[in-house]
Simulated assay, not measured.
Amino acid sequence: MLVRLLGLGLLAYGVFMLTSRQAKAALSANYDAMPEADAAVDVVARTIWGEARGEGATGMQAVANVISNRVANPGWWGRGWVGVCQAPYQFSAWNANDPNLVKLATVTTADPSFAAAVEIATAAVNGGLDDITGGATHYHTVNIHPAWADELTVTAQIGRHVFYA
């Protein structure tokens, strides 16, 4: 059972406790030991799983498309697969205060939606993923309307996400 220890920023899974800072450090250490392409697939998979695991394969593909479109057009949102995914405040699952960060560090391919995310990420990193978002570089859930959305053009709505270019 997941318990949030208020004021301490700790998440507990039974007796195993991990702070979001420790989670990110553990992931970074793993990436340092991996070939660059493997690290890219892992970071993209964790990003799309953290952002859209409840949206199924199509929703995760759409988030992967946004990442791919950003990688193809580097800018303020980062450079390269890892840089784009982990740029500050771009994908909320990587934010230090987001409970998804600890989940990102602990999920494995035993989780069917993460296994699907790995397949989608592999296709994206290898250039074999069709863009179903119409070139989107941004998205948000249907529950919100951020100010930046007014400056962009809607390209698609896929599941509970609206996509923009």
Rank of each mutant, 00 (worst) to 15 (best):
K24M: 08
V43Q: 11
A45W: 09
Q90I: 09
I48L: 14
I48W: 08
A87N: 14
R53T: 07
D111S: 08
E55M: 12
L101D: 02
L152N: 14
D38G: 08
R4G: 00
Y13I: 10
N69V: 13
L10A: 09
L10E: 14
G75Y: 01
N143L: 14
K103M: 14
G56P: 11
K103W: 11
A156P: 00
L6M: 07
T153C: 05
A33Q: 10
G54I: 09
I144K: 15
N30C: 03
L6W: 06
A110P: 01
V107N: 06
A147E: 13
W148A: 10
P112F: 01
L129E: 03
F114Y: 15
T109K: 14
V125I: 01
I120W: 10
T106N: 00
T19R: 07
M1A: 06
N100Q: 15
V41S: 02
A96D: 15
E119C: 07
N69A: 07
H140D: 10
N69T: 05
A23S: 13
Y164L: 04
A52N: 06
E119F: 00
G128C: 05
Y89C: 09
V71N: 02
S68F: 08
Q61W: 03
Y164F: 15
A149Y: 06
A116Q: 15
H138K: 09
M34E: 00
M1Y: 06
G80I: 03
T153L: 09
L10N: 02
I120Y: 00
V107G: 04
T155L: 03
D131K: 10
S68D: 03
A25L: 11
R160G: 06
T106H: 05
Q61Y: 03
R70E: 02
E51C: 12
A33E: 12
D42K: 02
T58H: 12
I67L: 04
Q86G: 00
A26Q: 12
V15L: 13
Q90R: 14
P146D: 11
P112E: 06
N143C: 01
N65E: 11
A33V: 02
A116W: 03
A52E: 10
W81V: 07
V3E: 12
T19M: 00
A147C: 00
A12C: 08
G14S: 12
